[in-house]
Computed example of a mutant assay.
Amino acid sequence: MRAHPMVGDSLLAAALFTVDVLIFLLEDLPMPAWYVTVPLDLLLVLPLVIRRRHPLWSAYLVLLFALPPNLLRLGLAAVFCTAIAIYTVVVYAGRKQGAIYAVASMATHLLAEFVMAEPDWVANAVTVTLIFVLCWVLGEYVGARRAYHAELEARLHLLETERGQAARIAVAEERGRIARELHDVVAHAVSVIVVQADGASYMIRSNPELAERAVQTISETGRGALAELRRLLDLLRGEGRSGEPRVPQPDAATLAELAERVRGAGVPVHLEVDGELNDLPAGVSLGVYRIVQESLTNTLKHAGPGASATVRVRQAADTVEIEVTDDGGNSGALVAAGESTEVPGGNGLIGMRERAHVFGGTIEVGPAPGGGWRVRASLPVRLAP
């Protein structure tokens, strides 16, 4: 009906027309000949076909064409078409237009009953009035529901727009923070290159072997800095450095301190480190730290009382694997039983994904099989030059 309104309204008009024709054929009532009755009934029901596309035009055409059938007592289509028209005007044109049309319709039908002066005209007038009032009330109800649904859809659209804007803002803020951190990493690399170059220039004649090691360090540091600088240029948005205090950037080697701080906040953390994390590039090491930090923060905020967490960091040949799981505390049993629990995420989850993707890594976030929550990430150990 909503996709093809004229088809549904055509069926409604055909049904009313058929009822009136059957009354003409089967009932022994004093009516004009068929060549008068059928055209009048057809003219009466045809405006219903356009009632939802042009509600006012349809309604007033029904009011005009209903007068002869009312006077000639041609079946039931005149009353029911007018009642449908009242409902249509209230729903699609508004309460004011519906009130005007309802008064005009009732006046027309009451005038026809008075002119015909039949013995039961009072009962007929009361019945018609009740039908019209019922259609008015139904139109009010449906119109109110349509307005409510329209407002609800508008609010949902606004919420979706605001959510999308909040996500974009969160991504921009996280990228800005990553850019500032990478800037510090590159500045550190340049400082190392300068110090090593000065040392090599002094040792090139007196200690060539030491000078050679310094040059190798310069080469490795420069390659790493170029890779991170290329990502920095992709992330920068032209913002100047804010007034935030300059503090040493954390890295994967300080995960033990992070775990200790979370334990002090009340969540037992078991830390397992497999491999030498001191050899990671500074940007990757910082990414490992931030992902673990955000995962443990989500455990603090969203896990139930008595929750505990496990952090596993393993360095393979080309990647560093990160897995942070928590048992969900008291809410872990609900997850295992299939009941819903609060899902961590929001801007923090967006930030973790953005941080993993900026280094060419992957991240998976979701419920753990036995209950609780799990974050798994994989970052490349060496950045492509």
Rank of each mutant, 00 (worst) to 15 (best):
A104R: 12
T319V: 14
R213I: 06
L229P: 03
A282S: 14
Y148N: 04
P32A: 04
A125Y: 00
P47Y: 11
M352G: 06
V335D: 01
Q216K: 02
G332H: 03
L277G: 01
L379R: 02
R231N: 07
G283K: 01
A189K: 14
R145D: 13
L159R: 14
N278P: 07
R177G: 07
E27Y: 05
A179R: 09
H149V: 15
R175T: 07
G143Q: 10
A66W: 03
L255P: 00
T299A: 06
L138G: 10
T254M: 08
A166G: 03
A112D: 04
Q315N: 03
G224M: 07
P248W: 05
I86L: 12
W121K: 15
L379H: 06
A150M: 13
L22A: 15
A167E: 09
D318T: 13
E151D: 15
I84R: 08
G224F: 04
D318F: 05
L383I: 10
T310F: 01
T310K: 11
T129K: 05
R241G: 12
G176A: 14
A189S: 12
L63A: 15
L130V: 15
T127K: 15
A189H: 11
I291W: 05
L156N: 14
S285P: 09
R163F: 02
L159S: 09
R205N: 03
L152K: 15
E27F: 07
P385N: 10
R146P: 03
E354D: 12
G75T: 09
V262L: 04
V335F: 01
L334M: 12
R175C: 04
E220C: 00
Q196T: 07
E321V: 12
T341V: 15
L138E: 00
T217G: 14
V89A: 10
H302P: 00
L74W: 00
A309K: 03
A166Y: 00
S105D: 05
